[in-house]
Design a protein around this nucleic acid. Structure first.
Lengths: 127, 127
DNA sequence: CGGCATCCTTAGTGATACTG
DNA sequence: CAGTATCACTAAGGATGCCG
């Protein structure tokens, strides 16, 4: 009835196993979200992302820049560094929006399932 | 011109910072993809996911089960363990499909950007 | 067949303090 | 203002081998 699975999914489903690429970065989604309304300076980003240490925020931004998702521009008048979405980055925010939509819709369900699982498997959670 | 960013995005954008949740699992996407065409036994999953060690595959499956995305069923005749998508899990595969679609479309762009960045920043990549 | 036990390595994250 | 330096912790991932 069911056909067998293809011998190697990695090329077929996702070029170079790209899926985990940007989603592996814990804060990338929120950083991109911050930039949806326009370019922002580093200090502006630090406000909503206060619980992210500067080191981690910088690394996220560098990674996003490396992948061509944001640009980094040093400016005088006013002095500062501005980050801005590239068209590529902007297109990714749409994808993130889809993910967030799913999460918002099903987060409770997921938490419930988790609670039920943990209740049914005490050994994995605690003694 | 631009309005200031909200003081805390975490509640606003994504409940409980859910975004990284399932996407932090490197193989979850491919596992879910394998299950889209119907229930599969563990040994069936191991074929396309050959480069994932049993330990890691099992952990992925357990995590997915914990979150209510797949079910795990032990069966005799034929003996084995079957994994199957729940409705919740199936709905997540749609999201993954969106992500994969984006990746397939823009992967080359991203790789190019990366190459350009690395070429422009030799110190970060090598000596 | 469907795992688990054990060990190891690394990358991500984080706290704290300091600087061009 | 926009980071960097240093240190520490954790969890994910992976290799190998064994078991009910």
């Amino acid at each position: 009835m069911r056909e067998p699975l293809p011998p190697d999914l990695f090329e077929e489903l996702c070029p170079s196993g790209v899926v985990p690429i940007r989603f592996a970065d814990k804060w990338a989604g929120l950083v991109l979200a911050c930039l949806r309304t326009g370019p922002r300076r580093y200090s502006e980003l630090r406000v909503p992302l206060a619980r992210v240490t500067p080191r981690v925020l910088t690394r996220s931004l560098r990674n996003l820049e490396r992948d061509g998702l944001v640009t980094r521009t040093v400016s005088r008048r006013p002095p500062g560094v501005e980050y801005e979405l590239t068209p590529l980055g902007r297109s990714l925010t749409e994808v993130y929006a889809t993910v967030c939509g799913w999460a918002a819709q099903h987060w409770d369900e997921l938490l419930d399932a988790r609670e039920r699982y943990d209740a049914a498997h005490p050994e994995a959670t605690a003694g």
